[in-house]
Design a protein around this nucleic acid. Sequence first.
DNA 1: TCTGGGGTCCTAGGACCC
DNA 2: TCTGGGGTCCTAGGACCC
Length: 430
Amino acid sequence: MNRLALVDCNNFFCSCERVFNPALQGKPVVVLSNNDGCIISRSEEAKALGIPMGAPLHEQQQVIRKHDVQVFSSNYTLYGDMSARVMSILREEVPAIEVYSIDEAFLALPLNFDEPMARTLRAKVLQWTGIPVCIGIASTKLLAKLANRHAKKNKLLTGGVFDLSHYWDPDGILADTPTEGLWGVGKNLALRLSKMGIRSALDFQHADPAAIRKSMGVVGERMLRELNGIACLELEEVPPDRKGVMASRSFGSPVESLEELEEALANHVARASEKIRRFGLLATGMEVFLQTNRFNRNEPQYSRGTRVTLDRPTHSTADLMSAARGLLHRIYRAGYRYKKTGIQLTDLVHEEEYQPSLFDQINPGKIDVDKIVDEINRRLGDRKNPVVTRASQGTERASGGSKGWMMKAERHSPHYTTDWNQLPEARAQD
DNA sequence: TCTGGGGTCCTAGGACCC
DNA sequence: TCTGGGGTCCTAGGACCC
């Protein structure tokens, strides 16, 4: 039987901070998101204080002061470096590894790899890097995730290692796992499943494939098979090519003028284009978007993004900047207080694989901004009906390291619009 | 009261993940 | 007053064409 392991670092960002500051051992520690807005990593001590994943920092100030919680801004350079060290140790122990995220990896296991060997591996990672990990072993990725969850939830009992494929009562474990604890099932799908009477992983495992197919599509059917030990998700040793690169930021305080938005956007373009150059990629398309503060229900809400195809692939900051500015001008509406803006570079191609056209060979250099503006006008200016009419369902959005810590509040706002022809004044009246 | 059908492209949205 | 950023995949529906 094929066997896989999922190795997952515990409270990764907090653990990294501890490696470089041993005085933090035993103390509650949290690490913050990009703008120091939310708590995205918590040590066991911080969890025990009841600090939830993804909580806004300002909501936790009392607990933090009272219990002297150590608070850190995130340091992705440090975490990336620690991650590479952990991954290189894992890579030496098994024939194949898929680095799934900064703190997780799937391992293809040799036939003789047993639980004691997993414990040795765990100890080795801890000793060499200072990072504690949990290891789950099973026959498919989905089950390995589940085994890992069990190892982590019952750390005292399991010692952080759990082999589901050799456990005497796998059904018992599945019965104890709510559907929402499954990889790929969030709040919304869990609700849908519970309406079908499916509440545990065991229920799901025995569900009718046709019914699952109908309510969850191919994704659900794939999960069903994985739960039954039929591998549908391959180990991806080589990460697939990126589809797009995004750069976006929230403003500390809302921004109203086009000039200020332009300034922020220039920053994003610089970051995004630098990133694709580092990967040796060229962008063939781009999307610019802006949003008002989705948490503020009392103000008119406006959110719009639009996309353009460039007349030839490029990674030049200057070229991308002029196109981005064109798009921003197109979607900008005066009278709103903007909270976030960003850019996405899309349809990426490898630099060395790109064959410049004869025209480009004769006329190397800048892309034709006039042509881009033409393109924007063709897409947007001449559209007969740019008004978005489809009703939104107003569902909650699950996002972030822990499920459902952010709400898609803008959909609930009476002032929400994606219609870029409607003025805020007109909106405020209804 | 009737008022084609099928295909493609595109945008927006919805769901999930870390 | 403060409430992240970066991804993936799938699907619905309108525009447009033949």
